[in-house]
Simulated scan of single mutants.
Amino acid sequence: MKLILTQEVSGLGAPGDIVEVKDGYGRNYLIPRGYAIKWTRGGEKQVEQIKRARHAREIRDLGHAQEVKGRLESLSIKLPTRAGESGRLFGSVTVADIAEAVKNAGGPEIDKRRIELAAPIKTIGVHQVTVRLHPEVTAKLEFEVVPA
């Protein structure tokens, strides 16, 4: 099955890429979740739009990725969240919350899909996540969850 990716899929490709996958994987996973659309000749026009949008927000090269990594790792980020007496959060911290906290702390605007959260963050304290900036560059982002 030939598909056009609309979002980045680990191990498969980036938005705008045309990929060949097994029918079941495309029909049952990629298309229903909005990660891909079926390939058509008309879809080729959409590929150009997707690639232009990706290029506008993409990190330009390895040097730019290293610069952004330095800025991210030097930030002091505090994320105020509602928490109970024992230090457990009401809910959990999401990647969207982390991306917003980075922006509010004066850091670069990063795409929430580039943040890798190993396990849900449900407690107060210092936590660390990985941010994939470039295929060769990952940044370790450290932030503190504080009660609001």
Rank of each mutant, 00 (worst) to 15 (best):
R54E: 12
V102F: 07
I18V: 14
I121R: 08
E136Y: 15
R82A: 11
L133R: 02
I110A: 12
W39Y: 09
I77R: 00
L62A: 09
G13L: 08
E144I: 14
I77V: 04
P135M: 02
K69Q: 09
E44H: 14
E142M: 11
I50R: 01
A36P: 13
Q128T: 15
Q49R: 07
V21W: 04
G63M: 03
Y29E: 00
A118H: 11
G42M: 13
A119S: 12
S92I: 05
R113G: 15
A56L: 04
P120M: 04
I50T: 08
P80K: 00
E44P: 11
S76F: 05
E48S: 07
P32T: 13
E116W: 09
V129Q: 05
A119D: 12
A83H: 10
A83M: 08
G70H: 04
R57V: 07
H64S: 05
L12V: 10
A14M: 14
A96L: 10
I121Y: 15
G16R: 01
V129D: 07
I50Y: 00
R52E: 00
P147T: 00
R82Q: 13
P147S: 01
P32Y: 03
A139G: 03
E73W: 00
Y25M: 05
V146C: 01
G42D: 14
A119M: 14
A65Q: 03
G24N: 05
E67L: 13
V145S: 15
V47Y: 07
E44K: 15
T81P: 07
T40K: 11
L12E: 04
K22W: 03
P80H: 00
A14N: 12
Q49L: 05
H55S: 11
V68G: 07
R52H: 02
H55Y: 10
V129W: 10
I124E: 09
A36M: 10
I59H: 06
D97T: 14
T130N: 06
S74E: 01
G16N: 01
H127C: 12
T94D: 11
A118K: 04
L89E: 12
G70F: 11
A101M: 02
G11Q: 09
K140W: 01
N28V: 07
V19T: 06
A36D: 07
G34Y: 03
V93K: 09
S74R: 04
L79N: 09
A36Y: 13
V68K: 00
V93T: 10
